[in-house]
Computed example of a mutant assay.
Amino acid sequence: MDCLFCRIVRGEIPSTKVYEDDDLYAFRDIDPKAPTHILLVPKVHHSSVNALDESSAAVVAKAYVVLKQLAEAEGIAQSGYRIVVNTGKDGGQSVDHLHFHLLGGRSLSWPPG
Score class of each variant (00 low, 15 high):
residue 82 R to S: 05
residue 36 T to S: 08
residue 56 S to K: 01
residue 97 H to M: 08
residue 64 Y to S: 02
residue 72 E to F: 08
residue 41 V to G: 11
residue 10 R to S: 15
residue 91 G to N: 12
residue 40 L to Q: 12
residue 5 F to V: 04
residue 95 V to E: 01
residue 60 V to L: 13
residue 96 D to E: 12
residue 11 G to N: 02
residue 15 S to T: 00
residue 79 S to V: 14
residue 107 S to H: 08
residue 17 K to D: 10
residue 86 N to C: 10
residue 82 R to I: 02
residue 19 Y to R: 03
residue 51 A to Q: 00
residue 97 H to E: 14
residue 71 A to P: 11
residue 111 P to W: 06
residue 43 K to R: 12
residue 104 G to I: 09
residue 72 E to N: 04
residue 27 F to T: 10
residue 52 L to F: 12
residue 79 S to Y: 14
residue 42 P to I: 03
residue 16 T to D: 04
residue 106 R to A: 14
residue 80 G to C: 03
residue 11 G to Y: 06
residue 24 L to V: 14
residue 23 D to A: 06
residue 90 D to E: 07
residue 41 V to Y: 05
residue 10 R to N: 14
residue 96 D to F: 07
residue 28 R to Y: 07
residue 17 K to G: 07
residue 101 H to R: 00
residue 28 R to K: 15
residue 45 H to E: 10
residue 88 G to P: 10
residue 110 W to D: 07
residue 50 N to S: 00
residue 41 V to L: 08
residue 20 E to Y: 03
residue 33 K to R: 13
residue 57 A to L: 14
residue 40 L to Y: 10
residue 26 A to F: 01
residue 80 G to S: 03
residue 105 G to Y: 09
residue 59 V to E: 09
residue 36 T to I: 10
residue 85 V to T: 12
residue 7 R to A: 10
residue 13 I to N: 04
residue 103 L to K: 08
residue 47 S to Q: 11
residue 65 V to R: 15
residue 104 G to W: 10
residue 85 V to S: 04
residue 55 S to D: 01
residue 85 V to I: 14
residue 51 A to P: 00
residue 7 R to H: 10
residue 106 R to Q: 15
residue 39 L to E: 04
residue 58 A to N: 14
residue 14 P to I: 03
residue 111 P to S: 11
residue 43 K to C: 13
residue 66 V to A: 03
residue 65 V to P: 06
residue 12 E to N: 11
residue 24 L to A: 10
residue 77 A to R: 12
residue 53 D to R: 00
residue 93 Q to K: 10
residue 43 K to L: 02
residue 22 D to T: 05
residue 106 R to M: 11
residue 34 A to D: 00
residue 25 Y to M: 05
residue 46 H to K: 10
residue 69 Q to H: 11
residue 33 K to H: 04
residue 89 K to A: 01
residue 8 I to P: 02
residue 63 A to T: 08
residue 78 Q to H: 10
residue 7 R to Y: 06
residue 11 G to L: 07
residue 31 D to P: 00
residue 41 V to S: 03
residue 42 P to M: 09
residue 83 I to P: 00
residue 4 L to F: 09
residue 67 L to R: 07
residue 83 I to S: 01
residue 85 V to Q: 04
residue 69 Q to I: 05
residue 111 P to Q: 13
residue 31 D to W: 01
residue 29 D to E: 03
residue 88 G to K: 00
residue 31 D to V: 03
residue 101 H to D: 07
residue 11 G to H: 07
residue 51 A to L: 02
residue 30 I to G: 02
residue 81 Y to T: 03
residue 97 H to G: 04
residue 28 R to T: 09
residue 44 V to T: 15
residue 65 V to D: 13
residue 50 N to G: 02
residue 8 I to Q: 13
residue 100 F to D: 13
residue 35 P to Q: 03
residue 80 G to P: 04
residue 42 P to L: 03
residue 75 G to E: 05
residue 106 R to C: 05
residue 104 G to K: 11
residue 66 V to W: 10
residue 28 R to F: 13
residue 61 A to P: 02
residue 40 L to S: 12
residue 99 H to R: 12
residue 39 L to T: 05
residue 95 V to P: 13
residue 11 G to R: 01
residue 69 Q to E: 14
residue 86 N to I: 06
residue 35 P to V: 06
residue 64 Y to E: 07
residue 101 H to F: 15
residue 74 E to A: 12
residue 105 G to D: 11
